[in-house]
């Protein structure tokens, strides 16, 4: 930290005024009532035990506290699962999870190697499928798929990236190859949907 860092930049008059108004912001009466109710519940032995050891978020606690809210959650959850089918899914079919599979991969020699994922493309009966693939940074599959016009990087966070693309299935299925540079244990998640099926797969890749 330098001396320069400690010099506080001046605030504009407009910002001073906004800060003053913000300083007046208080919890509403409704929120105060809600907090009061929460403290009453905390005095209940069940609530005490839950609050002491539970790390579940507030809304879950609300659901457990109110049976009617739990019923509503069930309804919304059902509706949510229907809506979760990605665009292009046949009707409102739910995703079919496939048990996780472990894939052993032995690298021979130094440098990068490509692992072809044994994904269940056959379930789509040759229909094109929209695929979402989640990888973590040591893994890269993009270079191999750059020829796919639909390839898109959908989202990334600090540890993972999700790519989406359309793949061929059946006899001429698009191979999903992942570049592996280092030994380790990697987890890849795959979701693929066609007019026929919607499948979710998880691969645990162990690289020597």
């Amino acid at each position: 930290m330098s001396d320069h860092d400690e010099v506080r930049p001046p605030l504009s008059q407009e910002m001073r005024s906004a800060l003053g108004v913000l300083r007046e912001e208080k919890p509403s009466a409704r929120l105060r009532a809600r907090l009061g109710e929460a403290l009453v519940r905390a005095d209940d032995g069940r609530a005490c035990a839950r609050a002491a050891g539970d790390v579940a978020p507030g809304p879950w606690r609300l659901l457990l506290a109110y049976p009617s809210a739990l019923a509503l959650a069930g309804l919304v959850l059902g509706a949510g699962l229907v809506l979760l089918s990605p665009p292009g899914a046949a009707g409102t079919r739910d995703a079919e999870p496939v048990p996780a599979r472990e894939v052993a991969f032995r690298r021979s020699g130094a440098g990068e190697r490509w692992l072809e994922l044994p994904w269940s493309h056959a379930v789509h009966s040759g229909e094109p499928a929209t695929v979402w693939l989640e990888t973590s940074p040591p893994l890269d599959f993009r270079p191999h798929l750059t020829g796919l016009p639909s390839l898109a990087l959908v989202n990334c966070d600090a540890a993972r990236c999700v790519h989406a693309f359309t793949a061929r299935t059946g006899d001429a299925a698009t191979p999903l190859r992942v570049r592996i540079e280092r030994p380790g244990r990697y987890e890849l998640r795959l979701s693929h949907v066609s007019e026929v099926r919607h499948v979710q797969e998880r691969f645990v890749v162990v690289v020597d």
């Binding site: 929120l31 809304p59 919304v76 509706a79 949510g80 979760l84 979402w132 990236c161 998640r189």
Partner: peptide, 29 residues
């Protein structure tokens, strides 16, 4: 997982529920 988040982008129903969306916005606030 991140994949769940991406697929969840197809709906906001669950997200709004778990973010407290069951309640109406506070008119006073």
């Amino acid at each position: 997982s991140l994949l769940d988040s991406v697929l969840e982008g197809t709906t906001t129903a669950l997200g709004s529920l778990f973010a407290g969306g069951v309640e109406q916005p506070d008119p006073e606030a």
